[in-house]
């Protein structure tokens, strides 16, 4: 472990410990705000881990999130929450590996559009399955865990995600992902099994999104496909990460906090105008600052 990485991970852990006291300091409203911030920090970071490094634009975040949520919905009667959450991650990761194996050898545009519809696909499949076999359209969680438990779980996932991102960036695996993003064929001629690296990166990133879905699912007492496969979650993640700078470690984190707050404040009053603004911001950034805002601060602290 390099000194730099040790420093970053220590900082992430310290932030995690400090944030762990929030449930006893904040009002319910502020705590739920903090929860959304954490969720988007984790989603945007895990998205950047794969898509930021490789330039493979994945729009599948909501699919992984939804899969995780359904693992909780189905499993919580027999499994403890503490087990459902990692299981949600593992199943989402396995699904990503499967999908990735089928399509990741294709050009980036195919990958993007395929993942674009993936959430819909899974949502339709689950709706169909529930209607046909379980004869239901949604599920009521009978015994959801306490709000504090949920918060601490999400915090733990978020800390793990950001720390993993930092570790990946400093590792050979991270170098391989960056090589794929820079020039895939060149990386291959230097000995990188690009196919395996891409599948592993995609699955790892899906693991965190799935675990988050599983952890957050209990916030809805009634779980139905329409709400947990909400494409908005995935889109918002991409926008946040790209605007913050998906190739930096800190960019998506800061951007996630800022935009989750904005989103909570503005979305209720000016929902459409706010989202239009996000879209416009992305366009302007891609045209004039393709590395995102984080690329302006390419100092040591941003790159880890």
């Amino acid at each position: 472990m390099t000194a730099n990485l040790r420093y970053t991970i220590t900082a992430v852990l310290a932030a995690g410990v400090a944030l762990a006291f929030m449930p006893w300091l904040l009002s319910d409203f502020l705590l739920s705000l903090a929860l959304s911030c954490l969720m988007y920090v984790a989603l945007a970071s895990s998205w950047s881990m794969f898509s930021g490094a490789t330039n493979y634009l994945s729009l599948a975040t909501s699919a992984f999130f939804g899969i995780g949520a359904y693992v909780t919905a189905w499993g919580l009667e027999t499994l403890p929450y503490a087990l459902a959450v990692p299981l949600g991650g593992v199943i989402a990761g396995a699904f990503a590996a499967l999908v990735g194996a089928a399509v990741l050898h294709l050009r980036g545009a195919y990958f993007a559009v395929l993942t674009f519809g993936l959430g819909e696909l899974v949502r339709h499949s689950i709706t169909y399955f529930e209607k046909t076999y379980a004869r239901t359209v949604g599920r009521v969680l009978s015994d959801p865990p306490e709000a504090v438990t949920v918060y601490l779980t999400v915090l733990l996932i978020t800390v793990a995600t950001v720390a993993t991102c930092a570790a990946v960036r400093a590792s050979r695996f991270g170098l391989a992902l960056a090589g794929v993003g820079a020039d895939e064929e060149r990386a291959q001629t230097l000995g990188v099994n690009t196919r395996r690296v891409k599948i592993a990166g995609f699955a790892l990133s899906a693991f965190f999104a799935g675990a988050l879905g599983a952890a957050m699912a209990v916030r809805w007492t009634y779980i139905e496909p329409m709400s947990v496969f909400n494409p908005f979650i995935g889109f918002q993640t991409v926008l946040i990460a790209m605007i913050g700078g998906a190739q930096t470690l800190l960019g998506p984190v800061v951007s996630a906090v800022v935009f989750s707050l904005f989103s909570e404040l503005l979305r209720l009053q000016f929902p459409y105008a706010y989202l239009m603004l996000l879209g416009l911001l992305l366009i302007v950034l891609v045209l004039y600052l393709p590395g995102g805002i984080g690329s302006l601060f390419r100092g040591r602290w941003a790159r880890a």
Partner: peptide, 15 residues
């Protein structure tokens, strides 16, 4: 075989 296997068997190239 894929290009990375050529590389791993000791073939390196410039473009």
């Amino acid at each position: 075989h894929a290009a990375h296997e050529f590389a791993n068997h000791g073939v390196a190239r410039t473009f």
